[in-house]
Simulated assay, not measured.
Amino acid sequence: MQSTAVAGSAETSADLPPGAPFVLSRPHGTVIADGIRTGFDSARDAAAALKSGTVTSVAGALAFDPSHPAALVAPQTLRHHPGSWAPRLQTIPHVRAGTSVPPEDEHLARVAAAIHVLREPEAALHKVVLARSVVLHAEEPLHPHTLLARLVANDLGGNGFSVDLGSAGTGWSGRHLVGSSPEVLIRRRGDTVTCHPLAGSAPRHADPEIDRQTAENLASSEKNLREHALVVDALRASLEPFCTELDIPDRPTLTSTPQLWHLGTPVAGRLRDRSVTALDLAVAVHPTPAVCGTPTDAARTLIGELEGDRGFYAGAVGWADADGDGEWMVTIRCAQIDADGTTVTAYAGGGIVAASEPDDELAETTTKLGTVLAALGLPR
Rank of each mutant, 00 (worst) to 15 (best):
M1H: 10
M1P: 13
A5Q: 09
A5I: 13
V6G: 00
G8N: 03
G8A: 07
A10G: 00
L16D: 04
L16Y: 06
S25H: 04
R26M: 04
T30C: 07
T30H: 02
V31R: 12
D34V: 14
R37S: 03
T38Y: 03
A43E: 01
A43W: 01
R44V: 09
A46C: 02
G53K: 04
G53D: 02
T54M: 06
A59G: 06
A61E: 10
A61F: 05
D65N: 14
S67N: 10
P69E: 03
A70F: 00
A70V: 01
A71W: 05
V73Q: 02
V73E: 03
P75I: 13
T77Q: 11
L78N: 09
R79W: 01
R79V: 13
R88K: 14
R88A: 15
L89G: 06
T91K: 14
R96V: 13
A97V: 13
H107N: 06
R110S: 08
R110A: 05
A112E: 12
A112L: 00
A112D: 15
A114F: 00
E120V: 01
E120Y: 02
A123W: 05
L125D: 08
L130K: 13
S133Y: 05
V134G: 02
V135S: 15
H137E: 13
P141A: 15
H143Y: 01
H145R: 11
R150E: 14
A153D: 14
N154P: 00
N154R: 10
G160L: 02
G160S: 02
F161P: 11
S162T: 11
V163I: 12
S167H: 08
G169W: 05
L185F: 07
D191W: 01
V193H: 06
T194E: 12
C195M: 12
C195E: 06
L198T: 01
L198I: 10
A199F: 03
G200Y: 04
G200C: 07
S201F: 02
A206W: 08
A215W: 04
L218E: 04
S220E: 13
E222I: 04
E227A: 14
V231G: 04
V232A: 14
E245D: 06
L246I: 03
I248F: 09
I248G: 12
P249M: 02
D250A: 15
T253P: 02
T253H: 07
L254E: 10
S256Q: 12
P258E: 12
Q259P: 00
Q259E: 14
A268Q: 15
R272N: 06
L279M: 10
L279T: 09
L279G: 04
L279F: 09
D280Q: 13
V285C: 06
T296I: 08
A298L: 08
A299W: 01
T301I: 09
I303T: 08
E305G: 00
D309F: 00
G311A: 06
A314M: 08
A320C: 12
D323W: 05
D325M: 11
M329H: 08
I332T: 04
R333H: 04
R333E: 08
I337C: 04
A339G: 00
D340E: 05
T343H: 15
T345L: 04
I352A: 10
A354Y: 07
A355P: 00
P358N: 12
E361T: 10
L362Q: 07
A363M: 09
E364Q: 11
E364I: 08
T365E: 12
L373Q: 05
L378S: 11
